[in-house]
């Protein structure tokens, strides 16, 4: 009964052929079959959003989808958010704003935020909060997360004409940013 099936899909831009049991969720397939453990399991019932991936441009809880359903789809996970060594602006802003404490919800928030900004580059605070309502964070009270997404949107808008990758910056500059922030004092 537990016959495995071959699934052809696209993950983070790459064609992937994988073998899984039909009962395995996409989350299990990502984590256990493909070893992409960046998508997290928080509830398995779609309530926490820690397993959020983007499928054909829409945020989806990968725990509420079978792996076999990914056939023919375009799946983006947290592992594909940075471009090579260059962090996505959202990732950078999450770091700058100290938007993560334990970090377990962070991949899910980043993917939800990515799906939002791809559709709506200039969201209001209410739109941001609505788009992130399917992601639970128990550490931060959300304040610093909302600030990071707001800042990322602004930064991307300002830079979209200059960089090809939606305002991505090299990961190496992450440490450079430290001194930059020291210089600024960063007291808001």
């Amino acid at each position: 009964m537990a016959n495995k099936v071959i699934v052809e899909t696209t993950i983070n831009g790459d064609p992937v052929e994988l073998l899984c049991e039909p009962r395995q969720s996409l989350l299990e397939v990502l984590r256990d079959v493909l070893e992409l453990t960046g998508s997290k399991e928080g509830c398995l019932t779609g309530d926490c959003g820690a397993c959020t991936v983007v499928i054909d441009g829409r945020p989806v809880c990968s725990c509420l989808m079978l792996g076999v359903e990914a056939a023919g789809k375009n799946v983006s996970t947290i592992e594909g958010l940075a471009t090579g060594a260059a962090l996505h602006v959202l990732q950078r802003k999450f770091l700058e704003h100290a938007s993560l404490q334990c970090g377990i919800c962070t991949p899910g928030f980043l993917m939800s935020a990515k799906a939002l900004l791809d559709r709506n580059p200039n969201p209001t605070e209410a739109e941001i909060r609505y788009a992130l309502a399917g992601n639970l964070c128990r550490c931060t009270g959300y304040d610093k997360i909302v600030r990071a997404v707001t800042d990322a949107a602004a930064t991307m808008a300002g830079r979209s004409s200059r960089t090809a990758h939606g305002g991505a910056v090299p990961a190496e500059t992450a440490s450079g940013m430290v001194s930059e922030m020291l210089a600024k004092g960063e007291d808001k």
Binding site: G46, R58, P59, L64, A115, G134
Partner: peptide, 9 residues
């Protein structure tokens, strides 16, 4: 119904 993640499905 649910979140945007849920409504996508």
């Amino acid at each position: 119904i649910g979140s945007l993640q849920i409504q996508s499905r």
